[in-house]
Design a binder for these strands. Structure first.
Lengths: 241, 241
DNA sequence: CGAACGTTTGAGATGACTCAAGCGTTGTGG
DNA sequence: CCACAACGCTTGAGTCATCTCAAACGTTCG
């Protein structure tokens, strides 16, 4: 089932069988995306949204010099550009990090859903607000944490998000991102991220090698990054404390 | 009309007369809020949302030491906790910055609206996504700009948001926030914000005095903060370039 | 008049950046 | 099958932006 991971293990968001079916039926297209490919540009008019099935994507904003600030990363089960449905055009770009598979759903299907299944409609709204909650956690990370804390917070968040969709066992996951990506996420230089990764390794908080993250003691890493997963609205008692 | 400023001058969001009336009718209560008062706590179960009529409010996340990171500020016409409708509880706190007037709308009214006026429902969704777009701009600000750029970006953003609701003439506005607030918004210390404000003054980019912001040349300030208002989804040709 | 609050300034410490170079791995074309 | 380019990772040395700590000033309000 292609939509299986959408809102999987999210409190107040999980889809009924009928809702899953309706969403599946709305899929117009399945696509493969190459790594580092831009799939939506800012300001572009949109008539469909994209559900990420496999792989990792990101959203980013360019500065004057062409440097990127990542404002979100997306894991399988996420809609990467659902905001484009009410907004009609996005304020940022969407690109793949790794190779990815996506499902395309036309906005007209969402119009129909809002008439037929208002509860599903509300869950789509919920999904976009989950993104907003993650944005806020990222603001906290950038505004209040030092370099090591930022990386620890991000790696903890990603661990929990991947646990929710069965792509992390809680201690290890593969996300195929580079130290350069981490820098663009955490508002640091890649040189400094590298030094931070060494320190995380030395303190046995986390080992990062060719896109694979190993976390011996997730609670300890979370503490170092002041990470509290409640903003992810996971089903109760599943993750962490 | 109490809801006049809600989505005023927003592209794709402006309310019809009928929609304004329906929203007015949904108002259950009008309240006055003292300055620096916390009106919603994180995790608290919510059964209503709050429309800001007058004054300024903020949303913030506490760190372990009790220091705050502001993740949003709100101006008249904003719903300060509409995210709480689909989410049921918030991941952050909501507080007033200045004295404020608010209107309370029970969530049950939104349920009814989603049946009766699906278009208004979509505009409420739109409003929350506007918040998300602002979150992303704040991420860009914290991740990519230096101290002076961050303050310039924030003051430019606030200028445009207040222009949209007729509370700025484009060169001057009153928002009653302190340098300490600015520090919590921009991820800086208040000491450094003070030095930045002096530099902005010396470079004639901006004068900030007892909560009043004066901007002699808004375009120049915007350039310094890499501020591009397109993420605010204003009606065309109204503001800036 | 004193307390509280916001602003201002100085001096010294430090976390992160810049610039620069080198290393290891992977993939590709001759 | 080797050579080389591309990419990501690693490390060092010096610089700079911002922070910390500390003190003082102005205004408002009770």
């Amino acid at each position: 089932m292609l939509t299986k991971r959408f809102l999987q293990n999210r409190r107040g968001g999980q889809l009924s069988f009928a809702e899953h079916s309706r969403l599946e039926a709305a899929i117009a297209d399945i696509n493969q995306v190459a790594p580092r490919d831009v799939i939506v540009k800012a300001d572009q008019l949109l008539d469909h949204s994209t559900l990420l099935l496999e792989g990792f994507m990101c959203r980013y904003i360019d500065d004057v010099k062409g440097l990127r600030q990542l404002v979100a990363i997306h894991v399988p089960g996420d809609f990467v550009d659902l905001h484009g449905y009410p907004l009609k055009r996005l304020d940022h770009n969407v690109a793949s990090l790794t190779q990815a598979n996506t499902a395309t759903i036309p906005h007209s299907a969402f119009d129909e859903i809002s008439e037929e299944l208002p509860n599903l409609s509300r869950k789509l709204w919920f999904a976009t607000l989950l993104d907003a909650a993650i944005h806020r956690a990222w603001l906290f990370r950038l505004g209040r944490l030092d370099a090591l804390g930022r990386v620890a917070h991000f790696l903890s968040e990603t661990n929990v998000r991947l646990m929710a969709v069965d792509l992390s066992d809680g201690h290890q996951y593969a996300c195929g991102i580079t130290q350069y990506d981490l820098a663009e996420i955490c508002g640091l230089t890649s040189v400094h991220v590298n030094r931070v990764m060494r320190q995380l390794r030395e303190e046995q908080l986390c080992v990062f090698r060719s896109g694979v993250v190993e976390i011996p003691d997730p609670q300890r890493l979370a503490r170092r990054g002041q990470f509290d997963p409640s903003y992810l609205y996971m089903t109760p008692n599943l993750f962490y404390a």
